[in-house]
Design a protein around this nucleic acid. Structure first.
Lengths: 319, 319
DNA sequence: ACCGGTCTGGAAAGCGGTTGCTAGCGTCGG
DNA sequence: CCGACGCTAGCAACCGCTTTCCAGACCGGT
């Protein structure tokens, strides 16, 4: 039953005041309105069911109080968690989030960015963006998450240090052949961390398998890794680790007795795998909070912030 | 380096035409523009890096081409998958999605709805909404997903029939004591389907455990269920089933040899549990497509559509 | 009685687009 | 040669809201 919308004009007429006055009371601004008038307006608003039109407001004010959020894949639990956290932070500040997936495709990504800019978002969050989305003539703040980009501010976990800590823990369990399942090109840090740990322990480099950041990818990677007979495997993401676990189970390899496993990310899913996964957790809430803070407060432009990770010990490493 | 935005006025001036003409070429509407003029305008647009202001357009046109999407929890893989599918469908039609979580709280949900309406969304998708969000004076189309609401159109999987099919499959494996892990109140259909299957097979009612729709809930529910010594368990959601698997593993119960497990939902996660879960998959893409179609085409108002589920056989049932 | 100050409400100008209506003008048929 | 028509481009109003500026009412002080 679509009645046509009630505008500020209707309210003004109903209350017997000018439209300006309605604005004054709605915004509770510095303008003073006589208490009696104010009540009349509020009554009118209630009676008519008036809802201010944020579009008009945005046009007039020059700000939509809306963020754009682009992830490579909304179905990925890590990004879903991130999106949720960003939404929470944004909502707390009166912002709202336009969320969309770019499927990891640079062309789609660029198109989505353009679309969001057209819609006058007040800020843009790019989660794990592709190489260079060309953000030169963008007039709103942009922040990249989990990847540093040449021209924009960024927030990301301490990939290298975190990976190193995870692998070092594996080393501390006595493992000498520690395999790595790593994502494609463009994300070298976790691999470096793994190397750091191995060389620091005086160990030879272990076997590496490259795979997409997916369960399927981890599954296949683990199968190839198995021939090198590692006693432990570090996966660069949860999803991959879950694939690794499956491959190990299918091969009759016991975890952690025969092969220990640890992974980067630490989404909730990892607490319920079998066995539960030891993970290097990236602090999603912290990243989200910092991203939103920067977008709104607009400070620290161009700075690349690294946030610490947390090693969570569970059964898959042998603890 | 925030330059101030280039508007249609700048383009008009640069191209030496009126602002109206810019509109004509941008919209490729029915209005005819001389090819030469058109080229001049396009050049101006490129040269200036003009981006039409969707806010102004929305104000004038009375439509934002934006949907609002509210889920109980953006972190839940099922909802994340749904959101992704809705985004894809919407994007294909030139729409964009404002997504937010309501944490399953009616008050938050109402507040979010109000916020989205204020922002003039062109349609509202409520995923598994709470009981009655009071949508009387809403002047945009609303669609409820996975729950039928008194006054709005809805799309949901065939919960009862799907659950029945899942349980019947368990019965076909010879199981006689089939436990149920079910969500809280307000979602009776899957429970009814379970009952249907049992009575149709002439079996006595099996043990029931109620739990939240979470891994943790399923975990605890399974622990209480174990005392009834079921030989199979049907979980009303993936998340719960994953909790169930963990409880069984911890208790040293083998799946599927000692206890078979099946679940409703069928998110990708279930393909990589150990053992892989037999699931009644709800057709997320179909639901999303239908929801978006209804929102845009505005037909079938108030109709409650039920879409069929698909039984996917994997190892956890003994197949 | 007059003046200045304070307080409240209204008129109106935009924000950046869209679009109905109109005007200029070249062309063509009569 | 003249009038009509078709094509292209411009004017201007409007979408709903904010905000500046102004006007009037009322107060107290002189």
């Amino acid at each position: 039953m679509p009645k046509d919308p009630v505008t500020r004009n209707d309210v003004a007429e109903y209350a017997g005041v000018s439209t300006a006055v309605v604005s004054y009371v709605v915004n509770e601004g510095p303008r003073k309105v006589a208490p009696e008038t104010r009540e009349r307006v509020l009554d009118a608003i209630r009676a008519l069911g008036y809802r201010p039109n944020a579009t008009a407001r945005a046009l007039r004010m020059g700000t939509t109080r809306t963020f754009g959020l682009i992830t490579p894949d909304g179905g990925n639990p890590l990004f879903a968690e991130l999106a949720k956290a960003i939404d929470r932070e944004a909502a707390a500040r009166g912002y709202v989030v336009l969320q969309t997936s770019a499927d990891g495709d640079p062309v789609t990504e660029r198109a989505k960015i353009a679309e969001l800019l057209t819609r006058q978002v007040s800020g843009l969050v790019l989660v794990a963006p592709t190489a260079d989305p060309s953000l030169d003539d963008v007039e709103v703040p942009v922040i990249a998450i989990n990847r540093v980009l040449p021209t924009v501010s960024s927030v990301r976990p301490a990939y290298r240090e975190g990976a190193r800590a995870g692998v070092e823990h594996l080393v501390s369990h006595g493992h000498r052949v520690i395999g790595l399942v790593i994502g494609g090109a463009g994300h070298p840090e976790r691999e470096l961390g793994w190397r750091d740990a191995l060389t620091a322990a005086g160990l030879p480099e272990g076997p590496i398998a490259r795979a997409t950041f997916s369960r399927e990818g981890g599954y296949r990677a683990a199968q190839t890794l198995l021939s090198a007979e590692p006693t432990a495997i570090f996966a660069s993401s949860d999803l991959q680790a879950i694939g690794v676990l499956r491959a190990l189970h299918e091969a009759g390899v016991r975890v952690p007795e025969d092969v220990a496993v640890a992974a980067f990310d630490g989404t909730p899913e990892t607490e319920y795998t079998w066995p539960p996964l030891t993970v290097v957790r990236q602090p999603v809430e912290l990243v989200a909070r910092e991203a939103v803070r920067r977008l709104i407060d607009g400070e620290d432009a161009m700075e690349a912030l690294t946030v610490p990770t947390e090693l969570i010990l569970r059964r898959s490493c042998g603890c």
